[in-house]
Amino acid sequence: MSSIDRLLSNYARQVRLPWSAHTSGKQRVWFAVYPPAEERRVRARLPQFEALTLEAHHGWTTIDLTDLLPKWISGHEYREGIFSEPEQFSANSELEDLAVERVRYGCMREDVDATSVVAIMGLATLFDFMRVSSLIERVEDCVRGRLLVLFPGEYAGNVYRFMDARDGFNYMAVPITSTESFITP
């Protein structure tokens, strides 16, 4: 069984577990953790994540952050300078603010309720421009059902490392990994 098949299997078990309505925002966040090299394979299998969610009688919404950086740069007044000297470029908090706005909007849509899964994909495109931990902390209060973060990185010892390169962060989210029979209720 491939690592993505195991991730899907572990996700299927997690999404079928009973959901408590009395959990904090932090506990409503699930991290589907996979090696960064598997990003394209996970994207290709996204319809299977959706199908498993619908089979478990939950709603599904996808928020794709892939185009956030290129759209932001293309509309930036100093884009020519950014392209001529990219080493001087810093997105500061502007990009993170846009990501937060997009995720909040997705979580607050009319068709999203306490039985829905909102999946965030495309985080790899934002590597080195923002911190995933900060994004999640800023949106956790608007999660009504569950927030599934497709996370290219690693999870070990309750620490998540984005793209296997940054210092890890300890977050209270539920990890779903591609480890054989790994599941945390």
Rank of each mutant, 00 (worst) to 15 (best):
D5P: 00
A12L: 02
Q14N: 02
V15S: 02
S20D: 14
A21L: 10
A21I: 01
T23Y: 00
S24D: 03
G25E: 04
K26E: 14
Q27K: 13
Q27S: 08
A32Y: 04
V33N: 10
A37Q: 13
A37R: 13
Q48K: 10
E50P: 00
E55K: 09
A56I: 04
H58E: 04
T61V: 12
I63R: 06
I63K: 03
T66C: 06
L69V: 05
K71E: 14
I73H: 03
H76G: 07
H76K: 08
E77K: 15
E77V: 15
E77T: 15
E77L: 13
G81F: 06
G81L: 13
I82D: 08
E87A: 14
N92V: 00
L98G: 09
A99K: 02
A99C: 09
E101Y: 06
V103Y: 03
G106T: 02
C107F: 07
M108W: 00
R109W: 00
E110D: 13
V112Q: 08
V112C: 08
A114R: 12
A114F: 11
A114Q: 11
T115L: 09
T115I: 01
G122Y: 05
A124D: 14
L126M: 01
V132D: 02
S134M: 05
L135Q: 11
E137Y: 11
E137S: 15
C142P: 01
R144V: 04
R144S: 12
R144Y: 04
G145H: 04
F151V: 11
Y155L: 06
G157N: 15
G157D: 15
N158A: 14
Y160G: 08
Y160V: 11
F162I: 11
F162E: 06
M163S: 10
M163R: 12
D164M: 10
A173P: 02
P175R: 08
P175N: 12
T179N: 12
E180I: 08
T184V: 15
T184P: 00
P185E: 10
